[in-house]
Amino acid sequence: MHDERLDVRVTGESAARETAPAITFDAISKSFTRPGGKPLEVLRRVGFVVPRGTVVAILGPSGCGKSTLLNMAAGLIAPDAGSVAVMGRDIAAGTVDWSRVGYMFQDDRLLPWRSARQNVALALEAGTMPSRERIARADAAIDLVELAGFAGAYPHELSGGMRSRVALARSLVGEPTILLMDEPFSRLDAQTRSAMHRELLRIQALRQMTILFVTHEIEEAVVLADQIVVMAPRPGRIRTEVAVTIPQPRIGAAATTALVNELRQSLGEAEPAPENHP
């Protein structure tokens, strides 16, 4: 599906990398072997592209391999067949600059023995940056997520929403060009989650990152993403791709509700929309 590669070889590999999509999944297949069981086919020939500067959601029920895809983009899991490229570089070749790729887990995963500031600075500790600069950048990231004044607090002293902000700051502190998120707000209550969506959109307007995130909630995908990759389970494969063209702010907009309902119907979900109608 990437025949354009043949054309760009003429102009040289580096030029190709400058224009390559942020992330390219090319015919990914993956099976996991459970101990004592048959191999479980998680992904079957999945391919799609995440263009630079866009927000893409992988939407699907549990068991559709969406987290596996995300972890492949993070270089944490290798595909059995197919390839993943980040900024035009094949992950298998080992030349990806991971310092510019941020990752946010499903839970906040803050180290309890570190203050908020130290937790954020942790993301800079793989390299050789001097500690003074790490702390300065961590403080800036904490300011960015509007937690100034809580930099010295320990995780147990913070609310769920604040902890989520610290985790977001940790994934942003390296000034990533690509941000990967694995159902990052799914453990928050509806109100806090909505606040985090606004927060993320505000930061995205400033930073213009490429964001790839995984979710099982249609509304979250519609509110945040430019493009939604809808997955089907067992084995995980792409069902359809939806482009979202509703202008921001989408939270609470009539067009958002309409699209959510439309998707919900076409994807065969019976439950009514949970949001309250004005």
Binding site: L76, W98, Y103, F105, D107, R109, L122, A123, E125, A126
Partner: peptide, 16 residues
Amino acid sequence: ADFVELARALRFSRAK
């Protein structure tokens, strides 16, 4: 184990 996975995602060396 989640923290070890975090270290892996942050590309920490074994020593780190």
